[in-house]
Write a protein that binds this DNA or RNA. Structure first.
Lengths: 267, 267
DNA sequence: GACATTTGTCTTTTATTTCAGACAAATTGA
DNA sequence: TCAATTTGTCTGAAATAAAAGACAAATGTC
């Protein structure tokens, strides 16, 4: 009886509710990847029920997968309410990457030096999909301890680095690459696409980029490209400094940054 | 003809080679986890064929899984021979863990300070399964740049930290926990179990541990426990210093280490 | 230059895993 | 206090993904 009722309901929803598209069986690996990426976006310990909703997976499946990942220490229970977040194994995998990657190691040393000498927060940035991301950073020792969330995806037009990271694309490619909603800034203003394209062209021409008042009104963002052999800025080096920093200082920092980034370029 | 030959050979091997036990279908998630753990053990870019052999998975399956993980940037192709290793996403997940874990953050600061003040390589260690592992480290700035591989599993009896990490267990529990082969040192000597048990008891009593000539003949290993609320040494803080360091200095360092570890204990 | 491995790709099949759903227990809110 | 959610666990069933194997091309070895 219960079964008949259930089936009727299913039939009904299947007929009426076409909108919910992606409700197909997915394989475990894909669920795992969605789950890890969702957790990275969430950027804090999250309950399993929430995760299931966010990745559009059945609860039963999500519980199953989380249990397996917790067993492998890739995830870890934390907090009293049954939240989970990344675990120790995730850290070890990440360190293995960082230790083995030559560019990453050299960048780490350079950031260390820059942060301690200039007291400015120093970042190593790149693209993840069509979004800008801070890959690694060293916080400046100054009073304004500007810190950044590593791994959080941010629209490219909000940042100086974003302009450099797109400077190998034609205007058409850029229009196609950056979703329209990414030109809307956090404060509600909308950045004109033309103005952004001009910024990118200038960034390409001068090999550096500075912006202010985009992601937030209190900081200057200075960036220089680390180009690969093909000349594409796969990653950037970046200073985040208070908006009231005087111009000579900004120029000095940007010159320094560009010089270091140049040295980091492959070959 | 080629086909017939191949099949005959297969049939033969299937008949003769019963020993290979675990050749059952496994699910994708388990394969992924084995693969990541194998890569961590390998600790260098590895070819897909090798990986398949190491985790006992069919080649076709391994290729499939690797392709999916590369797409998610959890793995990354590197080297000219088709090797793969951890990717950028693995780093981001790991950083998310490190940034969110309060103990980890505090330990990072302490290690930073200790390494720069004492010029000794400073490590944060714990257990992974029944093996000792370096979870994080800061290299001392001295001439003897002693560096360590993070995430590599090492038998507990080879290290000072290993003695502290087991000091909540009874002798019987320790015998059951540490595999017999782990008492064989890298130089071929075998450590007497009794002597190890005595070391553990002393470590528990004094709240610190020092060893030399175990994992290698050139270093001293000084360790202090970071205990949880139940008094169990879940992790340790550790200095690795040259074996010729004079005793007063060793005592001074160990005292310092024990004091810092005490401060790091929860609550 | 011939031979033996290894690599990367593809297809077919069947043993398995994902999913839907139901349920009791624990939370939350009025 | 009683609903209304939410949590965590289990089940059976059907869709599907893992495995086996075949093959061509690349690589390595004598």
């Amino acid at each position: 009886m219960g079964r008949a009722k259930t089936m009727a309901l299913n039939g009904q929803s299947a007929q009426s509710a076409a909108p919910k598209v992606a409700h197909e069986r997915q394989r475990g690996i894909d669920r795992v990847i969605s789950l890890l990426e969702a957790l990275l976006r969430e950027h804090k310990p999250t309950r399993i029920g929430d995760l299931a909703r966010r990745i559009g997976a059945p609860r039963s499946t999500t519980y199953e997968i989380v249990a397996r990942l917790v067993e492998a220490e890739i995830l870890e229970p934390c907090g009293p309410g049954g939240e989970i977040y990344f675990g120790r194994a995730a850290h070890l995998f990440g360190r293995a990457y960082a230790d083995a990657n030559p560019l990453f190691r050299r960048v780490g040393e350079v950031m260390e030096r820059l942060a301690s000498e200039t007291h400015a927060t120093t970042q190593f940035c790149g693209l993840r999909g069509n979004k800008y991301t801070v890959i690694d950073s060293r916080d400046g020792a100054g009073l304004f301890r500007i810190t950044t969330d590593i791994g959080v995806e941010v629209p490219a037009p909000w940042t100086a680095s974003g302009r450099l990271l797109l400077d190998h694309m034609s205007p058409e490619e850029i229009r196609a690459f950056v979703p329209p909603e990414d030109f809307r800034l956090p404060d509600g203003r909308t950045l004109a696409v033309e103005s952004f394209l001009a910024d990118v062209a200038r960034a390409r021409a001068t090999g550096r980029c500075a912006t202010t008042g985009l992601a937030d009104p209190f900081t200057y963002c200075l960036a220089a490209p680390i180009r690969d052999r093909a000349g594409i800025a796969r990653t950037t080096l970046c200073f985040v400094i208070p908006a009231d920093t005087p111009e000579p200082r900004r120029v000095e920092l940007l010159d320094r940054l560009a010089a270091e980034a140049e040295l980091l370029a492959e070959r």
